[in-house]
Design a protein around this nucleic acid. Structure first.
Length: 394
RNA sequence: GGGUAGGUUGAGCAGGUGGUGAGCUCCGCUGACUGUAGAUCAGCCGUCUUCGACUGUGGGGGUUCGAUUCCCUCCCUGCCCA
C-alpha cells in the first residue's frame, strides 16, 4: 500500500469544519458543519438527488422545503452525462443550479444494489452498466477522480457494502477491503476544497463494527460515515450496531453520517446515538408512490377514501402542497398519473422530513427529545401483521 | 327488407369447429419501498363455507352420455346493399 500524506499537508485549511455541543440526550449533539457552499445545522437530513436532481423537485422547491445539503451519485453521473462533461460545464453545483452543499456517494451502494451487474475484486468493481450493459470500472482512485470532477463539497470513500446476513467471513472480507480502499481514497484525493468521509462497515456484527470503527477513525478523514445499515436488518439490530459504533468512536470530534437512513422513527434512533447527518431516498420515493408522511402518520393517497377528503394533505404543514391542495386533489392526480402529483407529494415529504429534523434540533436544545420521539413513534406505528386473517382462524 | 361480421367475468380482448373458457391488458382494491436500474413493484380483482367448490361463452329450445362448439328460433350491435 502506498503511503499517503496526512490531510493537513494536502489541506492547509480543512475543506469542512464541524463543531458540536453535547446534549442531555444520550450521545446526541447539536452541531454546525461549515462547507465551501454553506453551513449545515445538525442533526440534518440530506434529500437524495442521485442523477443531479432530487426527483420531481427543482432547486427552488428544495430551498422552500428547507434543504441545506443534498446528495448526488458517482456511479450514475459517471455513466450519464459523465463526470468529465459536468466538469466542462462548470461542476455539479452550476450544472444542476444548486448552490448549497452537495455530498456525493462514491458508488459503493451500487456495489450492493446492482449486485447482479458487477464483479468485485480487490482492486475495484467492474459493472455492466444498467443503461447499456457496457463495462464500467470503478476503483477507489476512479471514484475519487469522478467526485473531484463533480466538485462536491463532500466526497465519500469507495466502500463495499454487503448483505449483513452473509456468512461472517464474507462480511469481514468486505469490511477489510473497505478499509484498504479507504486508504487508497485518501491517497488519491487532490482537491483542497473537497472533504472526504470514510465509511464504517461490518454488518451487524459487534466485533466487526468495533474493528471497523477503529480502523476508519484512525485515518485522516474529515468525517465518519456508518454504512451497511437499513439493508434488511431489524430495527433492534440497527440500534444495537449504532450503540457499538457510538461507543467505539467515543469522543471523536468529527461529524457522523448514517448512510441511507431513514424513516421518521429512524432519525430518533440515530440522533440519540450520536448521528449528525442522514440521507435517504425514502421521503422522495414513497412520495412518488403516493405515500405521505404527516402529523397523522403515513397516508396512502391512492386509497379510495381520500377521493372525497377535502382536508389539506397535512393540516400541520406549511408547505406549498398543504397550503394549496386537498387530499382529494392529490388522490385524483395520482389516479390520473398527472406529473404534478409527484412534485406536490415530494415537496410535502421533503418539507415534512426537514421540519422533523428542525424539530429534533429544537427538542435537543430544550430537552424535549424523548417526548417528541414518543409522539412520532406512536404516529408511525406499523399495524401488527396478522399471520392469519380473522376468516381463516375460525 | 337483403347480405355480412359479431355478442366471452366493470372495459377491451384471447381462446374455444362435441369431452378441462376464471387467461391477458386496462380499470378497481390493498400492501411494500431506507447511501434511487424504482412516477416502481407485489398481491387481489365472478360467487362461496377459499389447500377447495360452484357458476359463467346474448335469451329460449333441440340433438347428445356430454354443447361455448352442431341445429332451430328470437334479441342486440357494427358494416355493406336496397
Amino acid at each position: 500500500m502506498k503511503a499517503h500524506p496526512p490531510t493537513d499537508t494536502v489541506h492547509p485549511t480543512p475543506p469542512v469544519r464541524f463543531s458540536s455541543v453535547p446534549t442531555s440526550t444520550g450521545r446526541a449533539r447539536l452541531g454546525r458543519l461549515v462547507t465551501p457552499h454553506g453551513v449545515v445545522d445538525t442533526p440534518q437530513f440530506m434529500p437524495v438527488g442521485t442523477q443531479a436532481t432530487v426527483k420531481a423537485l427543482a432547486p427552488g422547491d428544495l430551498r422552500s422545503a428547507g434543504a441545506q445539503m443534498i446528495l448526488a451519485n458517482t456511479y450514475h453521473l459517471s455513466l450519464r452525462p459523465t463526470a468529465e462533461r459536468i466538469a466542462r460545464l462548470g461542476g455539479l453545483h452550476r450544472f444542476m443550479a444548486w448552490d448549497g452543499p452537495i455530498l456525493t456517494d462514491s458508488g459503493g451502494f451500487q456495489v450492493f444494489s446492482l449486485a447482479h451487474l458487477r464483479r468485485v475484486d480487490d482492486d475495484g468493481v467492474t459493472f455492466a452498466s444498467h443503461l447499456d450493459g457496457g463495462e464500467q470500472r470503478l476503483t477507489p482512485e476512479r471514484a475519487m477522480e469522478i467526485q473531484e470532477l463533480l466538485g462536491s463539497d463532500v466526497a465519500m470513500a469507495f466502500d463495499q457494502l454487503v448483505d449483513p446476513t452473509l456468512p461472517p467471513a464474507e462480511v469481514a472480507r468486505a469490511m477489510e477491503r473497505t478499509h484498504r480502499w479507504a486508504e487508497r481514497c485518501l491517497a488519491a484525493r487532490s482537491r483542497p476544497d473537497q472533504a472526504l468521509f470514510g465509511i464504517i462497515q461490518g454488518g451487524v456484527d459487534a466485533d466487526l463494527r468495533r474493528a471497523s470503527s477503529a480502523a476508519i477513525a484512525a485515518l485522516p478523514f474529515d468525517g465518519i460515515a456508518i454504512g451497511g445499515l437499513s439493508v434488511g436488518e431489524s430495527k433492534d439490530e440497527m440500534g444495537a450496531t449504532l450503540d457499538v459504533v457510538g461507543e467505539a468512536l467515543g469522543e471523536d470530534p468529527r461529524v457522523r453520517y448514517l448512510m441511507g437512513v431513514g424513516s421518521p422513527v429512524d432519525f430518533f434512533t440515530g440522533v440519540e446515538r450520536g448521528i449528525d447527518l442522514f440521507d435517504c431516498v425514502l421521503p422522495t420515493r414513497v412520495a412518488r408512490n403516493g405515500q405521505l408522511w404527516t402529523s397523522e402518520g403515513r397516508l396512502n393517497l391512492r386509497n379510495a377514501r381520500f377521493q372525497d377528503d377535502p382536508a389539506p394533505l397535512d393540516p400541520a404543514c406549511a408547505c406549498e402542497a398543504c397550503t394549496t391542495h386537498s387530499r382529494a386533489y392529490l388522490a385524483h392526480l395520482f389516479r390520473a398519473r398527472e406529473l404534478l402529483a409527484y412534485r406536490l407529494a415530494s415537496v410535502h415529504n421533503v418539507t415534512y422530513t426537514l421540519t422533523l429534523m428542525a424539530n429534533i434540533r429544537s427538542a435537543l436544545a430544550d430537552g424535549s427529545f424523548d417526548s417528541l420521539r414518543d409522539v412520532v413513534a406512536a404516529r408511525y406505528q406499523r399495524p401488527p401483521h396478522a399471520d392469519k386473517s380473522p376468516l381463516t382462524e375460525r
